[in-house]
């Protein structure tokens, strides 16, 4: 069990190049990792540091970022004993959104990863059932990406330019 203030140092020395940065966002310590190594990090945190609870995971799309950092995947882990909470992040380009699944570490990740696939198009290698979960199977795009507007693109009767939209 490691004190949270030195957890970052420890992860940095352990994972070397995979560790990209450490920041503090409100009450969370945020660690950014290389996307291919994040599964190793989560395994280590669960087995050695007591982060046995996966709070949530979700994706996000940043179209204005550098193309190599267009999509992000976020994991939040919780150590129920010390009540420490951390957030892990990985950025990736649009044409390489393959990640390793963590279903074998946390069963709860199953549907959450399917949701991330459904809405953003992340692919999780080794996932038992990589299918859409909330949207219908016939859908051929990933609706939470920023290029898809909320309303039907074919409509021209709504002009929101006066309201800052």
């Amino acid at each position: 069990m490691t004190d949270q203030t030195i957890l970052g140092e420890q992860l940095k020395s352990k994972f070397g190049d995979a560790f990209i940065s450490e920041t503090r966002d409100f009450d969370f310590s945020v660690y950014e990792f290389n996307k291919d190594d994040i599964k190793e990090v989560i395994t280590y945190l669960k087995n050695k540091e007591g982060f046995i609870y996966l709070t949530t995971l979700c994706g996000a799309h940043f179209p204005d970022n550098d193309p190599s950092r267009e999509f992000s995947m976020m994991y939040q882990l919780h150590n129920l004993v010390t009540n420490a909470r951390i957030r892990l992040k990985a950025f990736m380009p649009k044409d390489d959104m393959n990640m390793k699944t963590i279903v074998d570490i946390f069963d709860a990740a199953n549907w959450m990863e399917r949701e991330a696939f459904d809405f953003y198009g992340f692919k999780f290698e080794g996932h038992p059932k990589m299918e859409r979960i909330l949207n219908m199977e016939k859908m051929n795009y990933h609706p939470l990406r920023k290029e898809y507007p909320l309303e039907d693109m074919g409509r021209d009767d709504k002009d929101d330019k006066f309201f800052g939209r």
Binding site: T56, H61, D107, A108, W111, E115
Partner: peptide, 14 residues
């Protein structure tokens, strides 16, 4: 910019 709900039902219904 992005809002994600951690919905307990979605997670434990699995």
């Amino acid at each position: 910019f992005r809002l994600h709900f951690r919905r307990p039902c979605f997670i434990f219904y699995q």
